[in-house]
Design a protein around this nucleic acid. Structure first.
Length: 437
RNA sequence: GGGGAGGUGGCCGAGCGGCUGAAGGCAACGGUUUGCUAAACCGUCAUACGGGAUCAAACCCGUAUCGGGGGUUCGAAUCCCCCCCUCUCCGCCA
């Protein structure tokens, strides 16, 4: 959410931003509702002021000590009071009708406020459709001097992946990992967490079934509603990322400036319906309904330069993780047309996946400035006792099982066994290789 | 799931239906005093929105907010109804 005053005064900029993001929103309608809303408030405030003042008078005219002091007798005072009450009844009628109008205008206004996207930063490339400009690469895509296998073949031959039973249990886009597969999965997550702990990030364990306010606050609702699993009778939603509970953790709070920045991470289950994905990426472990992710979240001061620095930091953390895993990747500066409602800039990391013969997205690092903090009512107080909205940022540290695709495929040997990258071996009891079990 | 108790400002804690945005205390901040610290004293000390003033702020005015919503009343933190949450006893249970 943006500041209505800012929208009012920079309507053009907002319109251009929405255009660049390819997001449809009605700025004119919003501005019109805003001015009507302010007129109504002004009138209502004035009428309420009258009511308060006259109401106080009524009280006085009913107060024996007071009206005797004014030299009035009971009848005179009573009559004054009644007169006032008659006038009040009239004013309250007017309040009622204005109030009715306000209660029609406000919900629409608030609804529209939630649909206004934040303009992208200038360094974001203008684009069309999904994607971004490649800004760097690390590592070389591996070439094979033998017929390589994809992660599904490898997983099945090693006896660590069972897609059929996953589907039997839970429908399409589900899977089961066994033995070394499950161990490897856990090992990657632990490595990611340990790396972040080393760097001063605070480990968190958070709810993954959250109230709608958290979904709205982080910007996933109302637009992304289709993508979420809802537990409707309890009015709760399963989160698609720990970004939601972590970013909303301090919602409706006023932090002290000294507490910032807050560097968090959480490993959590992530639930995504993949509605609209249609038949896309149905093969293997690429796009599944339930996965695990270690997510980084930073809450910092309201300072764009600071936000940028932290953005670089969380991106670096993820790149370092990929380097530890020895997975070649590239980093994209995502186009305006592929940015979400609140994001001002987003960098994706894509890992080389032999079976896809391409880079595939494994990470997404976004910064939001105040956008989420405003929706969440997440603020901090400075030394001069002023309140400011925080800035929020997040990035994947690692997400599984997707990263198992390059991890298995890139490290396979001719005989179908898979070498374990050395950074993971300590988490696998020193095991160096996956062999059929 | 059933029975009790309770939800007031950063915290604790008062609060006859009008003069209570809310006593008092603590914490915090500014100041006086002081060799330093402590103590003492004085002052400040919720948030949002709107209006006015301004280059902008400071500032001035108003409205709303005492868990949330609705009602009674000229007037509600205070009375009534519904909901939510916390604590506690019982039952159930990873």
């Amino acid at each position: 959410m943006l500041d209505i005053k800012y929208i009012r005064e920079h309507a053009d900029e907002i319109r251009r931003g929405a255009q660049a993001k390819r997001i449809v929103c009605d700025v004119d309608r919003l501005v019109a509702l805003d001015s009507r809303r302010r007129e109504l408030q002004l009138q209502l405030d004035q009428l309420r002021q009258q009511v308060n003042e006259m109401g106080g008078q009524v009280g006085l005219y009913r107060n024996l000590k007071w009206y005797e002091k004014q030299g009035l007798n009971k009848e005179q005072a009573e009559q004054k009071a009644n007169e006032l009450q008659t006038q009040l009844a009239d004013i309250k009628q007017r309040i009622k009708s204005l109030d009715d109008e306000e209660s029609r205008v406000l919900p629409e206004f608030e609804q529209l406020m939630l649909t206004i996207p934040q303009p992208p930063d200038p360094e974001v490339p203008l684009g069309e459709g999904e994607g971004g400009d490649e800004i760097r690469r690390w590592g070389e895509p591996r070439t094979f001097d033998f017929e390589f296998k994809d992660h599904v073949q490898l997983g099945q031959q090693l006896g660590i992946l069972d897609l059929e039973r996953g589907v039997k249990l839970a429908g399409s886009r589900n899977y089961v990992l066994m033995g070394d597969g499950a161990r490897l999965y856990a090992a990657v997550l632990r490595l990611a967490g340990d790396l972040l702990i080393e760097r001063g990030y605070r480990a968190m364990q958070v709810p993954v079934l959250v109230k709608e306010s958290a979904m709205y606050g982080t910007g996933y609702f109302p637009t992304g509603r289709e993508q979420a699993y809802l537990c409707e009778r309890d009015e709760l939603s399963l989160v698609g990322t720990a970004e939601v509970p972590l970013t909303a953790l301090h919602s409706d709070e006023i932090l002290n400036e000294g507490e910032l920045p807050k560097r968090f991470f959480a490993q959590s289950c992530c639930f995504r319906r993949e509605a609209g994905a249609g038949g896309k990426d149905t093969y293997g472990l690429y796009r599944v309904h339930l996965f695990d992710k270690v997510e980084q979240v930073i809450l910092c001061r309201n300072d764009r330069e600071e936000s940028r620095r932290f953005h670089a930091e969380i991106l670096q953390n993820a790149e370092d993780m990929m380097q530890k895993l020895e997975i070649p990747y590239r980093v994209l500066n995502i186009w305006t047309s592929d940015l979400g409602m609140g994001q001002v800039q987003k960098f994706d990391i894509e890992a080389w996946m032999p079976s896809r013969k391409s880079y595939g997205e494994t990470h997404s690092a976004s910064r939001f400035y105040e956008f989420q903090a405003r929706r969440l009512n997440l603020r901090y107080k400075t030394g001069d006792k002023k309140n400011h909205y925080c800035h929020t940022l997040n990035n994947t540290m690692i997400a599984l099982p997707r990263v198992l695709i390059p991890l298995l495929e890139l490290n396979q040997l001719r005989d179908g066994t898979v070498m374990i990258p050395s950074a993971l071996r300590p988490y696998m009891n020193g095991q160096e290789r996956l062999t059929p079990s």
